[in-house]
Design a protein around this nucleic acid. Structure first.
Lengths: 183, 183
DNA sequence: GTCTATATACAGATAGAC
DNA sequence: GTCTATCTGTATATAGAC
């Protein structure tokens, strides 16, 4: 991937995590990178192509981060705490999850991008399900149900915590994990 | 409140719950109501005034719905199920929570509207805390922590379920309630 | 209270020179 | 690959007639 393209994707990702796709124009993006908007169109002919590139890259990076957790952390709680930390870091930088943000904008996404979003959430849910299955999850809930609870809980927590810049909702999710899972 | 103003707020609320404030223009809103955009400006001089009116009305309607639950439902689980149903109905109509949607757009809201959003979430959290305190909540979590878990869980669930039009995440939240609370 | 008309700014997108 | 220039559409917002 060309350096310029990568730079555009970096800055666009940051902007979308903060303000959403709708809030990012080709001109603003171009200005921040120091080129003209027509040059952005060279890399991403239409805005939907830019959205697709951002989702693909974010999904790949996120999957790599989850793999890194698998490799580095031992024990369910430590893995889940590392998972929560990804979201805490986002809130600390006043960012939302890129795919969470786009999920709010789903009505204005094309079908391909909606599918890509769905795949991101599915993969994350699968990873959580696998991790939870390693430990001793609450007997009244299946690992997948817990995974869904935590994934949507995390997205909602970051959404709400961003409103006032605090981390109360993420903290509650962290507490919930300790109640639902042992080891 | 004039009939026209109410009609504008009704249609605007619906539009924002589906596509966000950014996706709703004075022209689109005017077209749907059958007036000109300058007439919309008569009621809401600036877009931030429209946003403020929508948040205020939604907050009042939501508070009334919670009061109705208090009056009509007996028992914690029944009250919380009625609470979840509000969100399920939204997803069924392909809508997000108005304040959840605006929370995603928080970066482009002015300070007054951010505060109003925060108040909405605070009041809902308070209601949940009170309801949960009535029953026998999980001993390892304070009622307020459970309330935060459920509120952010609900917002996240509706956000994610809307991506593919299903209700898996809301279902998981409903299951979670049964594990965290007895009676 | 609603309209026509308009100001001004910005959006996404394209043609063609260099 | 990046630019200038431009098209076309739409955004928020306002002035002033009716």
């Amino acid at each position: 991937m060309s350096e310029k393209r990568e730079q555009l994707e970096n800055i666009a990702t940051d902007a979308v995590q903060r303000g959403g796709l709708h809030n990012l124009s080709f001109r603003t993006l171009a200005d921040r990178v120091g080129v003209k908007s027509s040059s952005v169109h060279y890399y991403f002919p239409e805005k939907s192509h830019l959205a697709a590139a951002l989702i693909a890259r974010y999904s790949a990076d996120f999957a790599a981060a989850l793999q890194a957790i698998n490799a580095d952390k031992k024990g369910v709680i430590k893995k889940l705490d590392a998972f929560v930390k990804i979201f805490e870091d986002a809130v600390s930088n006043e960012k939302f999850c890129l795919c969470g943000m786009m999920a709010a904008e789903v009505e204005s996404l094309d079908e391909a991008n909606r599918t890509a979003l769905g795949t991101y959430f599915q993969h994350t849910e699968d990873w959580l399900t696998d991790v939870i299955s390693e430990g001793q999850p609450n007997g009244d809930l299946k690992p997948r149900a817990i995974a869904r609870t935590l994934l949507s809980g995390m997205e909602g927590a970051i959404l709400l915590d961003r409103v006032n810049g605090q981390r109360h909702y993420l903290k509650a999710q962290r507490d919930l994990i300790r109640v639902l899972i042992s080891n």
